[in-house]
């Protein structure tokens, strides 16, 4: 700044013209790399867009799971109110407070596992009907719904449960196979190989017995 103070304004057109000539040669830019820079700009914009979407997607999914959990909880509390034994158990148990988040997740897990069990029983029972496109579509839609709930549970605090997580993961795999099978129901060669895979997964992983064990008795009894 001292230079500025020592040498304030000046007026020398010859110097100005010469300086402009010299300045034009300072850091002379090369040809603009338009296309290369555009690819970088468009990928950065796309990444920004993805980030914006995913930033909202997870909280919304979690909020939806929580709402579902609360709704199920309210529903079960209402049902258990009509069953005196269940109601008295709920009143005496400290873990049975409706607002306890761990309990909400357990209730949501219980509802999903019950649904999954019903789906798998139905799949085993009506296996032959899978060759009927309408039945296959119906099972596929049901499977997608249960698969989505299972995946939400895996990513929720319920998925941190060391006993529940392996069951949810095995269930996710089988449900994904069932959804895939229902989409390919018209292709008989694919159907038989997919069915074999699902049956083996069900047997090897003892999925149905594990589901029965994991589903708490109280909610079933309440029904």
């Amino acid at each position: 700044m001292s230079d500025l103070n020592e040498h304030p304004d000046h007026d020398d057109p010859r110097f100005d013209a010469w300086l402009q000539q010299q300045a034009a040669q300072l850091n002379t830019p090369p040809a603009t790399p338009r296309d290369e820079m555009w690819s970088a700009v468009s990928s950065k914009l796309a990444a920004k867009k993805r980030f914006t979407v995913s930033r909202y997607a997870w909280p919304m999914a979690l909020a939806a799971a929580l709402v579902l959990g609360v709704a199920l909880d309210r529903m079960m509390v209402a049902r258990s109110a009509s069953a005196p034994v269940a109601a008295s158990q709920a009143a005496t148990s400290p873990a049975a407070q409706p607002s306890d988040p761990a309990r909400l997740y357990r209730v949501a897990a219980s509802a999903t596992l019950t649904e999954a069990q019903a789906l798998l029983v139905s799949y085993r029972h009506d296996g032959l009907a899978m060759q009927d496109p309408a039945a296959a579509r119906k099972l596929g839609a049901w499977g997608r719904q249960v698969l989505a709930s299972t995946r939400l549970l895996i990513d929720s605090p319920a998925g941190d449960d060391a006993e529940l997580r392996p069951l949810l993961e095995d269930l996710e795999l089988v449900l994904a196979q069932i959804v895939r099978l229902s989409a390919n129901a018209t292709d008989s060669s694919e159907v038989s190989s997919d069915r074999a895979l699902i049956d083996r997964a069900l047997t090897d992983n003892k999925l149905l017995p594990r589901l029965r064990t994991a589903i708490p008795a109280a909610p079933q009894g309440a029904e």
Partner: peptide, 23 residues
């Protein structure tokens, strides 16, 4: 305009030894 004028004045002093180039 003032910033440019000040900048040029400073540069003129800094490049005084090359004065014959523009004079």
């Amino acid at each position: 305009k003032a910033q440019l004028s000040r900048g040029r004045a400073t540069l003129r002093v800094a490049l005084a030894s090359f004065a014959k180039e523009w004079e």
